[in-house]
Design a protein around this nucleic acid. Structure first.
Lengths: 143, 143
DNA sequence: CCTGTTCACTTGTTTATTGCAAGCAATCTG
DNA sequence: CAGATTGCTTGCAATAAACAAGTGAACAGG
């Protein structure tokens, strides 16, 4: 499967451009896994998620890496594995994800834990700061 | 073209559910047109946008209506036309759209006007109140 | 080492979705 | 009434996704 994307952009509208980056059925789920679920390897994305096919996962990881939304490093303990991680650009999607979660939780039956929804709603800033802190702490160790 | 969607959901995760509703290449653009660009008819979506095909537009409008994100009424002046409009559920996507706009504008070259980005960033609440006010004013006239 | 397993992909092949051109009934305009 | 317009629908080729089955490198145990 040739890596999809990199075709010419539809317009200069920021929403259109955003959608070209992450507006498909899977990219945002991978970002969610990285941001909220502590997943970081190919296998974890493949099995923990909603049933993405391995070729599609491979394609999306390459796209996201090309867009600089995630980065890829070899796992120090097991050279077969890679560790995927959000970049600054990726972690900055947190507010968008949070708003989408709140919207879904408000209008659809979801499995979102009410206390988390409550915190996102009323202590949004603190919640986002927390997400960022968690991300910083997972920083790859310096050599 | 049979209306797509209405297949069983992948998971109870709010992000996954949100993506099933609006996580395709076109739905959010239609919502953007309704929310920010004052477009409301089939023709306007078709021509003003990024080049959606008429069959896909038809499909997406039906899906969004089925999800209660938009509503459809006949135009009083021209019975050939329909007026599409955001519902409460639809207008509540405004924060998500705004965050996505800010993210895109921050990291990609977009055509977003700097003053609007500035207002979204620093007077976010007022901006959102404004969007909602505009939406309320466009309410269909009572009979 | 040798065997078996795991890992991150690739490589076909089938199936679903999209893009494109054309067509259509209902409605408007002259 | 003769176009033109509007909101779709239909048919078909092109593209992308889902599914199943590899592949080679790396690890774990004997």
């Amino acid at each position: 499967m040739k890596v999809s994307g990199a075709k010419q952009q539809r317009s200069s509208c920021p929403i259109s451009i955003g959608l070209e980056a992450i507006g498909d059925a899977w990219s945002l789920l991978i970002i969610r896994d990285l941001m909220f679920k502590g997943r970081s390897t190919f296998r974890e994305f493949l099995e923990g998620g909603e049933g993405i096919a391995s070729n599609v996962l491979s394609d999306r990881l390459q796209r996201l890496e090309a867009l600089n939304i995630i980065s890829k490093t070899r796992n120090a303990d097991d050279a077969r594995k890679f560790n995927y991680r959000l970049t600054q650009i990726g972690i900055d999607l947190a507010p968008t994800l949070v708003e989408m979660i709140l919207w879904s939780a408000k209008y659809f039956k979801t499995g979102a834990p009410p206390d988390v929804v409550e915190e996102m709603t009323h202590r949004r800033k603190a919640f986002l700061a927390n997400v960022r802190r968690g991300w910083e702490q997972s920083a790859p160790k310096a050599k």
